[in-house]
Design a protein around this nucleic acid. Sequence first.
DNA 1: AACTTATCCCCCATTTTAGGGGAGATCTAG
DNA 2: CTAGATCTCCCCTAAAATGGGGGATAAGTT
Lengths: 212, 212
Amino acid sequence: MIQTYKPLTRVVLIEDNNDVREGFKEIIGTHAEYVVVNDYPSCVPALKKLSSDKPDLVIIDLEMPEMHGIEGIKRIKKARPKTVILVVSVHEDSKMVFDALVAGAMGYLTKDTDPEGLLKALDELMKGGAPMSSKIASLVVKSFQRSQDTPLSERETEVLALLSKGKTYHSIADDLFISMETVKTHIRNIYQKLHVNNKTDALIVAEKDNLI
Amino acid sequence: MIQTYKPLTRVVLIEDNNDVREGFKEIIGTHAEYVVVNDYPSCVPALKKLSSDKPDLVIIDLEMPEMHGIEGIKRIKKARPKTVILVVSVHEDSKMVFDALVAGAMGYLTKDTDPEGLLKALDELMKGGAPMSSKIASLVVKSFQRSQDTPLSERETEVLALLSKGKTYHSIADDLFISMETVKTHIRNIYQKLHVNNKTDALIVAEKDNLI
DNA sequence: AACTTATCCCCCATTTTAGGGGAGATCTAG
DNA sequence: CTAGATCTCCCCTAAAATGGGGGATAAGTT
């Protein structure tokens, strides 16, 4: 019998805790479509073996010795851009989550995920989805939403948003169909309300307070 | 018997297709924790009744007559910031999705979602999650990731990223511990590579090509 | 050897920004 | 109805920032 139909998904695990790693291996082993080709306690050996392991999917922890998982994700994506990466971490703080996604992770589970949840996430990933634990998903969605209590008026917010895209007063004026003088006035008022006196500081405050 | 424990979650439906709306009503009616206090074929009447409906959760379509769902979301969030909003739409294009999330939606389902999926999403929302169909989730996650094939070097990308935050050459130099002259050189090279000759255009290209 | 990258320097003109003044129209809230 | 906020526009001026041109050196890669 010739097996050409549906090749197995090659999985690599990178997780420094031996028990957790073995647990993952066992869980994934129960699923017929996945094969764990290798597992490592650190990114360093995993990166060395990338070209022979040829993983379709990497499950990676973040807090690990030798090399941080975020750095590992970057290097894996650089070497093999098509590899799908799933983070399994205890961290639920936004910086860690966003850094991981920016680095190239497509999914992010917290460690309290149960076996079924893990397998479901793998299936979700392989069909092009982006599985996330609920806290992670809400972090991500909230990152799109701006603060509801802003000192700025709607028009000012609009001007600040264009300013943040690197537009000059002149092009903001064109975009909003108003004169450059009006743009200047808005910006002066914005600076006053945000207690700053230049563009850079205004954008730092805007970023911090989620005004745009 | 005094009922103080676990008040029902008040749900409002806004969906112009009568069949779909009735379907949702029926599905949600099967769940003991939710009560559909009202349902509307348009945002306009829904907004008028907001203060008496007092919804904890609004399920809303996007393409509707009289007022677009995005605008409806904005107004609902403005009037009742704590209301949780779930979009159920056929649209899977990124602009629509991001506009909805920016406007204040916490979840986004496509219309092929089955009844169990809908109820699961509601539960997820009420415990602070952000349920999304898998295509939507992957759109959202991908929005964090930058293009893998950039003409820019790592350092140049770094400089461009700081430029995009509104930093001046001087503060970029400080941030990267290099001289301002070096920053200028990097920026000149960036402009050449991106075929532009000013900051605004560079950032437009960067945005379009996902370089930062 | 040629190329890319990252770093730094000079000169110079133009563009952009910021701060000061004021003013009229509209709208909202007290 | 009045006071405040918002949005619009104008004048003047000076400082800050940008961009374009010319280099150069050192490290690293192909």
